[in-house]
Amino acid sequence: MLELLSYTFMQRALIAGALIGALCAVIGVYVVLKGLSFIGAGIAHASFGGVALGFLLGVNPVLTAVVFCLLTAWGIGLVSRKGQIKEDTAVGIFFASTMALGILLIGLMRGYNVDLFGYLFGSILAVTPQDVWVTIGLGAAVLGVVGLLFKELLFITFDPEMAEVTGVPAGKLYFLLLSLIAVTVVVSIKVVGIILVSALIVTPAAAAYQLTEDFRRMMALSVVFGVGSTVGGLLLSYWLNTASGATIVLLATLAFFVAAMCSPRRRRRPALQRV
């Protein structure tokens, strides 16, 4: 165990993993309660196009992915707000088209596909010192915004219409929330990969939701599940010699099922139906 921690690549992986586990868990609370899971998945897939574009242009792929994901998030938000297309239809269109764009761009390059594979499925053991700093910087920015606008984000998640009526700019805050999701996705793809990142956002929060009826407690529990899954999954994957991203997600899923079985919400259900 101690020997394992003496490897610098492992130290970096654990630090990045814990940070991302916490970040995804916090954002995941809003995603789960506001029903944005599919949007999260859509934004994650859009990052593939952004990463491919970065490789093609020779720019840091994280940078292009951030821009790409923000534009996609706003695009989905705009289309669904207009109300002419349903939100999930909008996601479905963006989801596939940005993925297709990524594949098209890869086709224009030759020989670089190994790195791209790392973005698709995660390569936490290949996290560089620069990656750790990017994670710390962007993660702190997202958590800082959440801290500053904590009460407003809670309000628009619970009751956006009432928020609007009492003078809270619910529409703008919704776009801010989508932007926070986009940045979280991009920061996290290095650890679990594009395909699995939405699970890391949704699952710890969904597990926490099973166990409490208090918003702050749900967020705290979600962080415990998120960090526990990334750190635990990482160590497990090392010992079992399995893919790290997949191990992390499966561990989080296991936690979810255990939480669901212990859930007081389940026990209370018959009482609720009397209302």
Partner: peptide, 19 residues
């Protein structure tokens, strides 16, 4: 939604409190 009654009532003042 995991929120307590007192918090919901306090939300009524969030707009007035300001960002």
């Amino acid at each position: 939604f995991p929120v307590r009654a007192g918090e919901v009532v306090l939300m009524g003042r969030y707009g007035r409190i300001g960002l």
